[in-house]
Design a protein around this nucleic acid. Sequence first.
RNA 1: GCCCGGGUGGCGGAAUUGGUAGACGCGCUGGACUCAAAAUCCAGUGAUAGCAAUAUCGUGCGGGUUCGAUUCCCGCCCCGGGUACCA
Length: 887
Amino acid sequence: MDYNFKEIEAKWQQYWADNNSFKTIDDFSKPKFYCLDMFPYPSGAGLHVGHPEGYTATDIVCRYKRSKGFNVLHPMGWDAFGLPAEQYAIQTGTHPAETTQKNCDNFRRQIQSLGLSYDWDREINTTDPSYFKWTQWIFTKLYNTWFDATDGKGKHINELTIPEEISKAGKKAVREYVDQKRLAYYGEAQVWYCRTCKTVCANEEVLNDGSHEKCGTKEVERRFLKQWMLRIPHYAERLLEGLDDLDWPEGVKEMQRNWIGRSTGAEVDFALVGTDKKLKVYTTRPDTLFGATYMVVAPEHELVSEITTVAQKSAVANYINSAAMKSELDRTDLSKGKTGVFTGCYAINPINGAKIPVWVADYVLMGYGTGAIMAVPAHDHRDFEFAQTYNLPIVCILDPEEGVDTELRRKILAGEACWSEDGAYINSVNKNIGIDINGLSKEKGIEQVTSWLESAGLGKATVNYKLRDWLFSRQRYWGEPFPVIHWEDGDVTLLDDAELPLLLPEVEKYQPGETGESPLSNAGEWLHVADANGRKGRRETNTMPQWAGSCWYYLRFIDPKNDSAPFAKAKENYWMPVDLYVGGAEHAVLHLLYSRFWHKVLFDLGIVSTNEPFQKLYNQGMILAFAYETASGSKVPSDMVTEKEGKYSHNETGEELHQIVAKMSKSLKNVVNPDDVVEKFGADSLRLYEMFIGPLDATKPWTENGVKGVYNFLRRVATFFGEKSNLTEGAERKETLKILHQTIKKVGDDVEDMKFNTAISQMMVFTNHCYKVGTVTSETANIFYQVLAPFAPHLAEELWALNGNLQSVGISSWPQFDLACLTEEVVEYPVSFNGKVRFRLELPVGLSAKEVEDAALKSDLTKKWIEGNTIVKIIVVPGKIVNIVLR
RNA sequence: GCCCGGGUGGCGGAAUUGGUAGACGCGCUGGACUCAAAAUCCAGUGAUAGCAAUAUCGUGCGGGUUCGAUUCCCGCCCCGGGUACCA
């Protein structure tokens, strides 16, 4: 048989479509397997070879699981809100929905051409009103939820007890109180704003030199704007704990832990001299209180203006101004050194009564802890650097003892060097208050000082997180509108469920408004509303960020057409959690943290039945390409490169180039389009190569010769098994049976372990064997097709049908391997002398160690190797190796 | 700086409760077929020495444990990713 992949693939794709082969039925009696791909943003560029990598892997797992009797949910959809379609709209006036539709159609066509077994009846699109209706609905749930810290659980806002003094203070006070508790709130936030683009931009879009990545101008400034925020830090502890039981790559879990950034320490109050105010600091090292020689507050700290003395007023004001002008990147640039200014105010160190100066410096950040610190320069590198710059006292209270060399220790004790590790306390006694931690180690010190602070009412043990409120609004057109109305009297209300979805208005221009307002502020008719009493209101004009739609899409796949609920409870109960989630590592934190957060809120509200959404996560590695660069490091496009005997040179200059691995890029002309690969080698070859190129989680370069290699394999399969005379009836050769059953076992095990590359190599070994022996039985062939089917489904179906099977290979059961076929009769023992293998000895299987030893000693070859030496010891590992130690 | 990955032939990669290093594929070399080429099929292919049998070396570097180390331990080097004044 010729390997006519075009014909074969078209035929079977049609067959699967006609027979609804991949339709998932909600049959609750079967064991379920929910296998999810991170759904793509349908860009205008179409599919990249990186997309089918993950999709093929999950497809193989799904086809395998189906043949093992599982009810498999394997859906696909589009994360289709996003900036590119909107920018295209600004340039051309094309409605983003139109662009999106076109791109989705193209993505769908490309994905379908790969023979992936998705249930297309469950396709979803985040921009579809029937989808974002429920995104808006979930937003209203977040808005109407508060976090009860006592129970560690989110609850409906109706369950919030209003303190009596608040209710007495009137309606406005009550509303403010409640708003402070909601998981979603509308508040002032400091954001980046680009005057050229007339829009806020993300931190990542502002480059090192203070210019805006998108337009290149330096018209970027910080603005305070009212924005929607989500109180994700309330779930910090839950998000942290939840990680422990997840089957995720350790690296991803670690990144989430770092992002959440839990630290334990204490809050300590310092009295301010000459005022009745207190300055509250957060520290992880309350034990070093004796070494606190000054304090620092962030420039934005509310007390700054109050505590600054008249003499220091202008210096402080200047400093605050210049700090405000600095970009975040300047401010956090460690190489630039620390700056600050004295406020003129002093505080009292509660542990020893010392009067210490209060400074303002921008190395202290308002957003973490209390925005103020006690500085312990002897034992904190940042404080040390600052103290050196401004000649502030450095008092060592922790002796490193034997931990360092004598010179360094001398410096540390003299306050000339900084020591942040453990040691033994010195100078840490205050008899008046009964504190003496001298000689203790760090752990004990922290414990004792903290309990003293608590008993003295000066502070308390505190847990802090780096995780911040999530800025949840964008000044964009192409996003989910917030179902929110701002009324003229200052009231804010949400639409009723019955009024959802709130659709996007048609607008004439997609350009943002003049004052940092979203393009929706141009939509006059949509914008202005009035209630029954004639009260006027204005709709929220910001839209939700792209994360919103992807936060819960895995739930919608369960019941995508439900229009009375986001999903039916019974179905959710059956399908959740997701058993396998595959996608790129770039979502290690944001998407995966955001959706875990939403999921936990929904769990608390009784809307979902599992505490976590994704039980097992697997990150596919990136697919890169070879690129070429000159000795000086400049890159050369692939079409300018000539290869000769493993050396590369420039077509025109003849300069020698060396091969590197880099991201595919248009400028390097090394982008691979999956369409071209399918056209040239077929979908099965593309699928197989995506898996054979290397381990799924590794970063690896694409090579066309590699595709040829797997194409060659498939062609050899088609040629061998397509030839009727190669298939016989009757009993199979023993050796063929052995390799066949090895293959069944290895491929099955490897699929379970996501080791697809070695599964394929085993199938190659089997095929090479078939060529060697010339014929196999048709039963052997059938079994091989079943093993091949998850990987190269089109070819497997074709051969399966050719062999007389009437139903799809996809509905057959995974073959059982027979242990009896795998057992060897002889073992080839490597015999080594002093660890070096010298020869091999064939022995019957199942001999005892003693029998193996005797047999080895009897061999003439052994005698030869022993000659002139004495045997010290003989090690026999039955079934593995013989090692004879000589002297 | 800190955290997490990873270093194995010319290349992508196999093999770890410590037990024959280099499966499978690419590339390369030789042969068959062909007027020739492509395609295909067959054989070889870690390095060095040798006609060969064979020997020595060999999993980033330096040590250690062991009968035996790619695998375990200690100390380094290099590459990739994440993060960054979080007190």
